[in-house]
């Protein structure tokens, strides 16, 4: 199997959580004897090359972050440039987000389920996973650890069944958090998390409160 992996994030690769996920997923593909080539739409000058790879190959995987309940605007723009193909081409997706619950990604997943039909190709499933916001903020070892589960999914994908196997469905984790956990997390959000976010902001040179009302 040879997979064309397209990073559908508008964020430049260096800071892209999706990029780190693709790297780990790719290791899983290689473990099982598959090969891949990878691209990123954040660089507009590479769009011609991505389109060419999309046309020439039959196993396409787009990995993307959820942007306001669906695909990022830049990816929509790129998708408009793709020609129609036939169902010998299979289009699969990795949809990732910051919010942790699986239910947060279902609206975006629904769009991706229908997208292949518009492009004339067949659907290879969608791997759905949240809680990825902080990957870019981790050091290399932390990124490796956070994205390690995607390696197993790469190995699974190399077996040829897309993302339709039970293991891929279970990968999402809980659709909603149980109430006791939500209560606990709510306390964390109001205290530790708030402090951590402000610390992260300080490391970016920000000394303004994160809830500042910029226009008032």
């Amino acid at each position: 199997m040879h997979v064309v992996m397209i990073n559908g994030s508008p964020r430049i690769e260096k800071y892209s959580n999706t990029d780190k996920i693709i790297s780990s997923f790719g290791k899983g593909l290689l473990e099982r004897g598959a090969s891949f080539e990878r691209y990123a739409i954040s660089e507009r000058r590479s769009w011609d090359a991505i389109r060419e790879a999309y046309i020439k190959n039959e196993e396409i995987l787009i990995a993307l972050p959820l942007f306001v309940e669906c695909v990022p605007g830049l990816l929509l723009e790129f998708l408009e440039t793709l020609p129609k193909k036939d169902d010998r081409t299979r289009l699969s997706f990795i949809l990732q987000s910051g919010f942790a619950e699986g239910s947060q990604l279902r609206c975006g997943e629904r769009f991706l389920e229908k997208l292949p039909e518009y492009l004339g190709v067949c659907y290879g499933g969608c791997l759905v996973k949240g809680d990825n916001f902080g990957i870019r903020l981790l050091d290399a070892a932390g990124q490796e650890k956070a994205t390690k589960p995607y390696r197993a999914m790469g190995a699974l994908f190399a077996e040829g069944d897309g993302f339709f196997r039970t293991e891929a469905k279970k990968f999402t984790g809980p659709e909603y958090f149980p109430l006791p956990l939500r209560v606990l997390m709510q306390m964390v959000f109001k205290t530790i998390a708030k402090k951590r976010f402000q610390q992260a902001a300080a490391s970016w040179g920000c000394d303004t409160p994160l809830d500042a009302k910029a226009w008032e």
Partner: peptide, 25 residues
């Protein structure tokens, strides 16, 4: 693709400054 144009989605995606980083349930 049955959805909004990318021009509209670009406008929606950039609404994020109206929200803060802080979270709640």
């Amino acid at each position: 693709f049955g959805f909004l144009s990318y021009q509209t989605k670009n406008i929606v995606d950039r609404v994020l400054p109206l929200a803060t980083m802080n979270l709640k349930f």
